[in-house]
Write a protein that binds this DNA or RNA. Structure first.
Lengths: 352, 352
DNA sequence: TCTGCTGATTGGAACGATCCAAATGTAACC
DNA sequence: GGTTACATTTGGATCGTTCCAATCAGCAGA
């Protein structure tokens, strides 16, 4: 026993070590490992004892090489540090783990160059599939060049630019951005607001475009006009939202409510309003998007749209697993529903 | 060209395909791939052209098998959904990517059983090293049993239970919890506070014990007594902190300030104080720990301890890379410094 | 004894790369 | 021409597993 632990410092024990160790062939040991019903009970017991004795660890890479299969799935995110994606990743990993897959992680930090590099690096490890939340401005042809048409790919959260050639029949899982923003806008309209702004986000982001579309849809349906200065762009974070807040009130008529691009922006806007002496939820109503943890606990609590990122993660994993199971079925395009969470930031009627 | 893209649907192109495709041996192609100076310029050009033509992708798994090396590192976290760890993971992945490694992700969700399963699963993929932030209550012998003494392991953030045998000479990267809490406490004392509570966290968590130790250290050094009811335990989240808030004021003398286990708890306590009609930062001072994004932007902004999780991630990656480079050097034990960020939640003197 | 059959086991060739020793071609020198 | 030196190239074994066809032992039936 002592001998084993010393020798094991030098070289990992392999199938053959076990085989010679208990006087059977490699093939038999392999069968035991995979729980084949072909092997005799007694030999199975003998082999398993030896496996424990030498404390053998399976070399999945070698097995995958021979079987021309893979047991990993690549998860590439544009911003892992963002809690939304962190929770998503957590869900993905959870579901993949259940299915016996391992997650290859890659974070691109919104850089297209890094996305290329990460894709190229991960693809060399031969993942069975890829879940990709593309960086802003990512392009079909670039992604396709890096991954090649072989590996199944699931696009999450964002579309990629460039008109997709038929070759790329990727699955897609998106959030219902447009409907979400429409719901929020309708909610504000129902409360009596007429001057409603759309605050935050960048025009070149697809999710922002979709949310803006939902907002305009609701406004148009209610017969409300949108003043140009009610569309204020800013980076999707708190700090920039605070800075851009005054732009909302630069011209009249000033809005009495705002649909914000996401929660971070909404929380920033709240802060900006406070700095102007206004009281969010009282003399100005606003909504967010994402339902991050702090949305429910702020003062006032923020009305927002829940997207259930962990569930989306599990769903993404599920979709890619299905794809592996049926490689030839038609590509799927799923728009995950979002849910309006009404809270105090939009309770009160405007004091116009 | 069309032929290639069709045939490539069936089977990945390999070294031999390239070799026969341009009339050289596999060995030569291999040399080209690895940029060896041995090959002639002309043959290199010829081979590279063929590589592009067949758009070959390197099979790193096969190479690793032969070279008995690995190009991946496992990252196992007790709670990926936590922004602190998400940012840490982001830093790890960033640094590992630079070094040409790929990150194998595993999230345990604070479950020891899952930790075992995840470790066992990931180790089969033969990572070159492991970065582990253990689940609460994780044990040396369990971890050791799962990973075997072979693979270098870096312990992050938490110690594991059980007295470590000499066999496990793991590197460790910890946060300076004790000093952090001591700094916060000293800061409150310097502001004039005498009745200071320690709020939140669980006694069985090692980081909580360390922070509590820093608090008592500072109190003792200042000659201040600690009343038993100033130590209030609660789960490390906002919701439970709100619930437990009244316990602080159940008996007199009531504290005028509190050192909180972390930011989440501190933000919850703020909320709880507001519900009691108190004004955090004005008639009660408090500090957090972690410096999460919302700490700076709350009302009032929260005094807390910055731990720079992304930097810690890069550092962890760096440490494990160094370990791979020098497998035999003495195990390292690094305690990362934390930095006190003084903000409005602790500006004012108590109104006693 | 021979044949057929079932249940267990096995040797050897893969998988796609790398390593190594040996072979090849070319130029240079005596 | 023969020897040496150098720059390139290469066949075959190998990493640790799985696949496949072949083998083997044991037993029943003729």
């Amino acid at each position: 026993m002592a001998t084993e632990s010393i020798s094991s410092v030098h070289r990992k024990t392999t199938l053959s070590d076990i085989a010679t160790g208990c006087g059977v062939s490699r093939a038999t040991v392999s069968l035991v490992l995979r729980g084949s019903p072909l092997v005799n009970k007694l030999t199975r017991a003998k082999v398993e004892k030896e496996l424990r004795r030498q404390n053998y660890v399976y070399n999945r890479a070698a097995a995958n090489l021979r079987r021309r299969s893979s047991s990993s799935i690549a998860l590439i995110l544009n911003d892992l540090a963002n809690p939304f994606f962190a929770e998503f990743a957590s869900g993905v990993d959870e579901r993949l783990g259940e299915a016996g897959y391992v997650t290859l992680l890659g974070s691109t930090g919104e850089s297209i160059e890094r996305e290329q590099a990460v894709l190229r690096s991960l693809i060399e490890h031969g993942p069975a599939g890829i879940i990709l939340s593309p960086a802003e401005g990512s392009d079909v042809s670039h992604v396709l060049a890096a991954v090649g048409g072989q590996t199944p790919l699931l696009l999450f959260n964002r579309e990629v630019g460039g008109n997709a050639p038929k070759a790329a029949h990727w699955d897609r899982l998106m959030l219902d951005n447009q409907r979400g923003a429409r719901l929020a806008t309708e909610h504000l309209i129902a409360l009596g607001h007429r001057h409603i702004a759309f605050f935050g986000g960048h025009r070149d982001s697809s999710s922002c475009r979709e949310r803006f579309a939902g907002y305009t849809e609701a406004m148009r349906a209610a017969g409300l006009l949108i003043k140009p200065h009610w569309r204020v762009e800013c980076a999707p974070n708190r700090v920039d939202a605070v800075v851009q807040c005054p732009a909302l009130f630069a011209r009249s008529p000033a809005p009495t409510a705002a649909v914000c691009y996401n929660d971070a922006v909404a929380l920033g806007l709240m802060l900006g309003l406070c700095q102007r002496g206004m009281q969010p939820g009282h003399d100005f109503a606003l909504t967010g998007f994402d339902n991050i943890a702090e949305a429910a606990l702020g003062v006032p609590p923020l009305t927002t749209l829940a997207v259930a990122p962990r569930e989306r993660g599990r769903q993404a994993a599920e979709l890619i697993l299905q794809r592996l199971h049926e490689p030839l079925s038609a590509p799927r395009y799923i728009i995950a529903p979002v849910q309006l969470m009404v809270r105090a930031s939009s309770y009160t009627l405007p004091t116009t």
